[in-house]
Simulated scan of single mutants.
Amino acid sequence: MFSISLLPYSVQHYLGLAIGRLAKTILKSRVGIARRNLEICFPEKSDTQRQDILEGCFSHLGHSVVDTANAWFWPQWRFAKHFKVEGLEHLKKARQQPGGILLVSAHFWTLESHARAYGSLDPGVGIYRPNKNSVYEYFQYHGRVKANKYLVDRTDVRGMIKALRNENAVWYAPDHDYGTHAAVFVPFFAQDKAATITGTATLAKVKNVQVLPTYALRNQDGSGFTLVIEPALENYPQGDDKQDAQRINQVIEKAILRAPEQYMWIHRRFKSRPEGEASVY
């Protein structure tokens, strides 16, 4: 990956496309999962439209390998040349008030670039799953904190709360299916029963915390990507687990619809089902 980061940006683009094509050929099961997710979420779209999103998804998977290399190894001056910011005023407004910031995001293929870009503006704390391979874990951890403070294991809720109480920005992605513990079944796109964790509302209850939706999208012109920061959510949480979880899903849906092909459709978003219901996969 370090070698990839040394290549000219134009060469990286074609390398990313090649990796994406290879991944689509090798990862047959993931192709099937992605296709099924798109059928569930977008039944109103034609087969051709869903296929276009699927093809784009794997192209962006390939680009994510390149993006990760750049996010972990590029010097700041080079990284800064390839991203722009949309909504910086929302971050500045949030930082004018005391308290931490809960960055509600989602699993786009740009997530490594997202972490580096946001950290360039406001170094924060990331939530992640440690890798079992110690060598990979070393590079993952140090790559992700290149422009940020530190990382917290996704199971360490106390660590997240502590970071927020210390007025840090905490990156949090509640869009995957993490099981039925501390979760409710609420709509996500056209699926009316998607297991959604209630942790977002729990963290948002920390004193003076503001919730800012944020994500990064690759620019269509190939110039890099855009870090998007949206206004802080008002009147959140409400105190009703289902209502609060559904609102976060709506925030994530809005982000995905800006570039559905850039979202990680390869994960089984709907693997958990209410008792008695059959698997949708």
Rank of each mutant, 00 (worst) to 15 (best):
P174V: 06
N219D: 15
Q210D: 09
L203M: 12
L203S: 05
Q210V: 06
H176A: 00
K207M: 05
D221S: 11
H176N: 02
I197C: 05
P187Q: 10
I197D: 01
D177F: 12
L217D: 04
T198F: 02
G159K: 08
Y172W: 08
F185A: 02
L164E: 10
A195S: 13
D177S: 04
S223T: 10
T202E: 08
A216Q: 11
T180A: 12
W171S: 04
V206S: 13
G159P: 06
R158S: 14
Q210K: 15
P187H: 12
A163M: 06
L227H: 04
S223E: 08
A190H: 15
Y178E: 04
K207R: 11
H176W: 05
V206Q: 13
T200C: 08
V170S: 07
L203Y: 14
T180P: 05
T202K: 14
M160F: 05
V211F: 14
I161W: 01
A194E: 05
A204T: 09
H176P: 00
E230D: 11
N219M: 09
D192I: 00
V170W: 09
N208K: 15
F189M: 08
D221V: 04
V184E: 14
K207V: 08
G224V: 10
T214N: 09
T214I: 13
Q220K: 12
I229F: 03
L233K: 06
F225C: 12
F225Y: 14
V209Q: 07
R165S: 09
F188T: 00
T200F: 06
K205T: 15
F189G: 01
G224L: 12
L227S: 01
H176M: 06
G159I: 11
A216L: 14
A194W: 10
E167Y: 04
A216W: 00
G222Q: 08
F188K: 00
R218D: 00
P187L: 07
N166G: 11
Q191N: 15
D192P: 07
K205Q: 15
R158H: 10
V186L: 05
G199T: 11
K193H: 14
T198I: 13
H176L: 08
I161A: 10
V209M: 05
Q191G: 00
A183S: 12
L203D: 09
R218E: 07
T202Y: 10
N166Y: 07
F188N: 00
V186E: 10
K207F: 04
L203P: 01
G224F: 15
G159Y: 11
G179N: 07
G222S: 12
P213E: 07
A232W: 05
G224C: 08
T198D: 02
T202M: 12
T196C: 04
